[in-house]
Nucleic acid binder design. Structure first.
Ligand code: SF4
Ligand code: SF4
Lengths: 137, 137
DNA sequence: TTTAATTACTACTCTAAGGTAGAATTAACT
DNA sequence: AGTTAATTCTACCTTAGAGTAGTAATTAAA
């Protein structure tokens, strides 16, 4: 009942990048050290983020990563979708999903409420909004 | 972002047993066939449920399982705890958990709200309440 | 007393996520 | 031109959850 490590890492990585957008480029080394994410695993994630166009990479010495898409236009929901980690609309808390309005278990309505609330939260939370002052990302 | 198969199976198994409490004993075979849960995997779960005292088993021919603890006293939360699948109080949506009231990300308050709501739902949902008429468990 | 039906036990296999290793590629700096 | 610091590629290892296989133990029915 939680997000995958990959998703959580990604959110923290992108939030960190927002918080350091004064720098033109941020290296994998810096991200790995400051966010305490295994270097090799982080670079694997970064390559994926580049390939889907969230960020851009500059190779070679003095290289690094920077946003390609605006942080205000990348939502947590986008990230969860990317790593197949989002709460699907048809997701049933019990994994049955052949119930209908007339035949539903006692968990159904409460679950739907929580589900909708979480989905809304993920959709409305941009990386830009997660980062910022108080945040201890 | 969902429950483990083991937890989901268990909820359905116990709900089925409530819905068939007219029978003195219910066999693994019946459960497996009616709930579409792999037989061998189901018996593994059953043994665990017996060992923690939720149900009782009668071995040998004509044997099977029956409740030891009352279904109205077994909550979904108990099941999630058993399979280490519950939402821990300290669980942070981003897996950081060194944030405090003054340093929190934009997801924090919304996440806490959903978390509390889910935890409450799990605690207040007994197997007895999940099963029953309309239910398509 | 044998047989059939049942749970329990032990020990595997399979899969996907998470993580690691090493070498290839790129490009700025000296 | 050579060195160095960076990303990228390919391939592997590890772990936990899910699921399977075979057999032993138990007990009622035949
Ligand atoms: S009624 Fe219960 S089992 Fe059916 S879809 Fe809703 S939550 Fe799932
Ligand atoms: S502030 Fe954000 S990152 Fe920190 S504990 Fe709360 S949800 Fe997690």
């Amino acid at each position: 009942m939680q997000l995958s490590n990959t998703s959580k890492y990604t959110i923290r990585i992108l939030a960190y990048m927002v918080n350091h957008k004064d720098k033109p480029l941020i290296s994998a080394k810096e991200l790995s050290e400051n966010l305490n994410i295994p270097y090799k695993f982080l670079t694997k994630i970064m390559t994926e983020l580049v390939s889907v166009g969230f960020i851009e990479s500059i190779r070679g010495r003095e290289g690094g990563y920077k946003f390609l898409k605006k942080a205000s236009e990348i939502t947590v929901s986008d990230i969860l979708t990317l790593f197949n980690d989002s709460i699907k609309d048809e997701a049933c808390i019990l994994g049955i999903d052949f119930c209908d309005a007339k035949h539903k278990c006692a968990l159904h309505d409460k679950w739907i409420k929580s589900k909708v609330q979480l989905q809304k939260m993920f959709r409305e939370s941009t990386i830009e909004s997660i980062a910022g002052e108080g945040s201890k990302i």
